[in-house]
Amino acid sequence: MITAGIDMGAKNIKVVLLEDGKKIRARAQELGGTDTRGATEKAFNAALFQAGLKMADVSHVTSTGAGRANAPYAQDNVTEVGAAARGAVFVHPATRTVIDIGAEEGKTLRCDAAGKVIDFAVNEKCAAGAGSFMESMARALEVKLEQLGPLAMKSTNSIPMNAQCAVFAESEVVTLVHQKHSKEDIARAVHDAIADRITSMVRKVGFENDVVLIGGVAKNPAFVETMKRNLETDVLVLEEPEYVGALGAALVAAENAGVK
């Protein structure tokens, strides 16, 4: 039986096709933009093409993400927190803590071996800890987003940056640039600041090994390094981290369709 999970994220729509609740058949994503319905269709069709399947082959569709209530094709939905837990435990069964940093929201959760959520926290008003902040920092330093992490890894000097308030942080970066600090050191300061905010959130819920990282920002090596340092434990980046939410939704779809 084929089920599908659609993650209607704030920025990107992700689709995962799953066979018998076990085997991943396809993964596809599309920029949400202003026509999210069109983007979802595109992503869904791309996934079907990848797997060599037709729409009629899909038995059950579950959505997740910020826009899950309005997802086309979906028969039901599961919250991002629930989907993240299920997907992470599927990919890495020893997962007990998931840190999910997306474009607009950062969240952390603790779960049990079955992927059931025990407690969770989402970044609150006063926190600069999400992907869009990374993007604006990359702009301030005039580098591409993908270059930000590698740049930070080259730094040999840590400069304290507060970043309690995203606006304050941006003006701090401007100050650091004028003080002629190197781009590498500033990039590292930005990562440290964001990691601090995320770490604060993680400490609120507490963490238990294994700790895994999902969501777009997980692909940033400097961020991962800093989190390992802060938590003083290993932090694993799951394969295809930005698809874990959609995968979790596909697993829930399988459950809802009666797959054991």
Partner: peptide, 17 residues
């Protein structure tokens, strides 16, 4: 005067730094 990440579980961020 150092940024820190340990007080969040104990004091809500709306209170003074």
């Amino acid at each position: 005067h150092e940024p820190q990440n340990v007080t969040e579980p104990h004091i809500f961020a709306m209170f003074c730094p």
